[in-house]
């Protein structure tokens, strides 16, 4: 980054650290760094502690690979949740989204990625193998594929379906169709075709 040579080295270092964060450009990085400079020492300390705590105390659940403080995570150790159903999602944020819906009381499995042939992300790059291992215990009867309804999400769902079918587990896919508040006129053919396939009695 072309910075005035007079910027003191510690500030320069902070600017560069911010600049590495997603969505932060050179100007935003500068503004953040100078903001930190003006804050009290306690506030700055709180920030560094928060950052370090995330790195030190958060890890992956050994069962579902969701991010957690306690291992196994709250979902995996909750006896009221159905142990026979596993919902497979791309990333930890998707777990929160499904929890928010309130309609699911089973287990999760977080892939931490998605198959992307174009960018060369293959089965070895995401946590698929752990899912296969989990299934070998025999307790799981249904796997719900909750990857995004995008090209990559569909490819991942089909791949996992193929991988698991010899094990005799039921593999299901989230329904695809019109989102609430949608406009038929602007809906693409794929979505409409899927919506028609999955139509229901009113």
């Amino acid at each position: 980054m072309a910075e005035a040579p007079s910027t003191p080295e510690p500030i320069q270092r902070l600017i560069e650290a911010f600049h590495r964060l997603p969505g932060i450009g050179p100007k935003s990085a500068q503004r953040l760094a100078y903001h930190i400079l003006r804050t009290s020492e306690q506030e700055a300390l709180a920030l560094t502690e928060a950052v370090m705590d995330v790195k030190r105390r958060i890890r992956l659940c050994s069962v579902c690979l969701n991010i957690t403080e306690a291992d196994p995570c709250a979902y995996c150790s909750d006896d009221r949740r159905d142990k026979a159903v596993v919902c497979v999602v791309e990333q930890p944020l998707d777990v929160l989204a499904i929890e928010r819906s309130g309609g699911y009381k089973g287990q999760y499995h977080v892939l931490h990625g998605i198959l992307n042939p174009i960018d060369g992300v293959g089965p070895e790059d995401i946590h698929v193998r752990e899912l296969v291992v989990r299934l070998q215990a025999g307790e799981i009867q249904e796997v719900i594929m909750a990857t995004n309804p995008s090209l990559e999400g569909e490819a991942t769902a089909m791949y996992i379906q193929r991988l698991l079918s010899p094990a005799g587990v039921r593999v299901t896919r989230l329904a695809r169709g019109l989102p609430s508040g949608a406009d038929l006129e602007y809906t693409d053919d794929v979505t409409l075709a899927r919506a028609l396939e999955g139509r229901r009695e009113v």
Partner: peptide
Amino acid sequence: NSGRYVEALAVPLRPPVHESPGDV
């Protein structure tokens, strides 16, 4: 990238290795 992928689909996933999931 996808050519390697075509090949990967043709062979089954390596037998699962028991490894403890690492840190984030």
